[in-house]
Amino acid sequence: MSSELNPTSGFEQLRRIESSKLFQGAVIAIIIMSALTIGAKTYDVAPWLEQSLSVLDTGITLFFLLEILFRFGVCNDKKRFLFDGWNLFDTLVVIGSLIPLDNSEAVLLGRLLRVFRVLRLVSVVPELRFLINSLLKAIPRMGYIALLMFIIFYIYAAMGSMFFAKVNEDLWGDVAIALLTLFRVATFEDWTDVMYETMEFYPLSWVYYLTFIFLTAFVFLNMMIGAILEVMSEEQNAEQAQKAHDERDDIARQLQAVQEQLKELTKQVSGKSGER
């Protein structure tokens, strides 16, 4: 049977189109165009250009709608299409983009969801998806590091409030304000001004700041980076193992197909020999 009459062959062709670099490149180009359109609307432009941007935005929304419907159509397991987080995100963004902007109550929501269309670039580019997935999976490990960091922040904030409240009430008046001050120190935002101010009353207070910066800016930051890199390494190894497994399965299917063809040829040869 020819491939034109074979539904499976036609479905595979659509699958190849959906996974092709040309199709993915077109989607990326439209996403970039959408980002430029959103940025252009933040400027004061001529009325004719504003109308052109609105028409272009409508065309982009229509393209995204057709693209998500096409992806749903070529999906092997349509019932689990939305179980994929990226498919769910893309679908919600596309549905949100269909909100009419002429409704005053929905204008802000519609514009916000149109801004999120730029994030679709993450779901289209595999490398960006890999980074985001690794970051999300590293959050539980980073949570314990963040908890330990908060404990250190709280201890130093309590000490700072006890010792330095008389120096500057605005910076060290209570624990909450001291936490904000320590966050300023941790981000190196004019932290030396804070240190020199307390050193006028407590000359050895530089030890307080240096130990705090060493723990937060060097130790805990490197622990955060290490946790993310460890998860990325695990994800990369798992992806390579899955790829190798898929290649073995593909080779096994090809070998099985070759064996079946050999059996068919053997039967045909045996049949012709029997006829003779």
Rank of each mutant, 00 (worst) to 15 (best):
T266A: 12
F214E: 09
G226H: 09
Y209G: 01
L221I: 03
L221V: 09
V194I: 11
E230W: 13
E235M: 02
Q261K: 15
L179Q: 01
Q268Y: 00
L210R: 03
I225N: 11
R253D: 12
R184F: 01
Y202D: 05
W206C: 04
A186W: 01
I251K: 14
E247G: 04
V269M: 05
L255C: 12
Q256E: 13
E200P: 03
T187N: 14
D193E: 15
L182F: 01
E189M: 15
D246K: 10
L179C: 07
M224L: 13
S270K: 06
T266S: 13
E239K: 05
L204F: 06
E264P: 00
R248F: 09
L221D: 04
T211L: 10
S233C: 09
V269F: 07
Y202F: 10
D249Y: 09
A178M: 01
E200Y: 06
I251C: 09
V185H: 01
S270R: 06
R184K: 15
Q268H: 07
H245F: 07
E200G: 09
Q240P: 02
T192D: 06
L221G: 01
S233Q: 12
R248D: 13
M195D: 04
N222Q: 08
V185A: 10
D250P: 02
F183I: 10
D190V: 10
N222K: 03
I251L: 14
D193Y: 04
A252S: 14
F220A: 13
L255R: 11
Y208R: 03
W206H: 03
F214D: 11
I225S: 07
N222E: 08
F183G: 13
A178H: 00
A227Y: 08
E189A: 15
T211V: 03
R253C: 10
L229I: 10
L229D: 14
K267N: 05
E197Q: 09
E260R: 12
V258H: 15
E235F: 00
I228N: 09
Y208P: 01
L204Q: 03
Q254V: 03
V219L: 11
L221N: 08
A257T: 10
L182Y: 02
V269G: 06
V231N: 04
R248M: 11
T187E: 11
K243Y: 00
H245E: 08
F218M: 03
D246H: 06
K263L: 11
F220P: 06
L204K: 08
Q236N: 02
Q240G: 04
A257N: 12
Q256S: 13
I225W: 09
Q254N: 08
V219E: 04
I225Y: 14
E260Q: 13
V269T: 13
Y196H: 12
T198K: 02
E230N: 15
A178C: 03
I251W: 15
M224Q: 11
A178P: 01
Y196S: 06
A178K: 02
M223K: 01
L204N: 08
F188K: 10
Q261C: 11
L262P: 00
Y202L: 03
F201T: 03
E264V: 10
R248N: 12
A252G: 11
L210K: 06
Q256C: 09
N237F: 05
K243P: 05
S270E: 11
Y196I: 06
N237D: 04
K263Y: 08
T211Q: 09
L255D: 13
L255W: 14
L180H: 00
V219M: 07
A227W: 00
S270V: 05
N222T: 00
L180I: 05
H245K: 08
Y209Q: 02
L215W: 06
